[in-house]
């Protein structure tokens, strides 16, 4: 049911871990749905993503999309990175099974949150990530799957 690329990123995920003193951190998902993604960013003075790491609780699709997006944006500017969509991440992986497009394809949302966190940090120091509540912006109660 998964493509070779998904299985490759699931079995050999790239950029797993944390960045100490990260410039931006973003988390999406919640335990109810069973997917939580956290992305850490190191951004240099030219607004280029120098380093990116992730930790993910979830299925193979959740882990693979997290891994894939770290590869896609490393070395890119945050302006470029902001343009990446969940759909593009899935496409880079050769597609995802239909139900996974909804519930586990959250990596671009996590990245956006991390970038917003970084931008917030530049103005007002706010390095705390929300650990409680629903960080998923989807309405799962109206899910058709």
């Amino acid at each position: 049911m998964y493509t070779e690329q998904v299985m490759d990123h699931f079995t050999n995920p790239r950029n797993v871990g944390e960045i100490e003193k990260a410039d931006g951190v973003g988390e999406v998902g919640n335990m109810k749905c069973g997917d939580i993604m956290r992305i850490y960013l190191k951004v240099n003075d030219n607004e280029v993503i120098e380093d990116i790491k992730f930790r993910t609780f979830g299925c193979a699709a959740a882990i693979a999309t997290s891994s894939m997006i770290t590869e896609m944006v490393k070395g890119k500017t945050i302006t470029e990175a902001m343009k990446i969509t969940n759909k593009q991440v899935a496409a880079e992986l050769g597609g995802l099974p239909a139900p996974k497009m909804h519930c586990s394809n959250l990596a671009a949302d996590a990245l956006k949150k991390a970038i917003e966190n970084y931008q917030g940090n530049n103005n007002q120091v706010n390095n705390k990530i929300e650990e409680t509540g629903n960080n998923c912006n989807r309405d799962c109660n109206n899910c058709s799957y």
Binding site: Y2, M7, F10, T11, G34, D35, F57, G58, C59, A60, A62, I63
Partner: peptide, 11 residues
């Protein structure tokens, strides 16, 4: 605990 079932099954 701390891991998700589908990931375990596939592994």
């Amino acid at each position: 605990l701390f891991v998700e079932g589908e990931s375990l099954i596939l592994s």
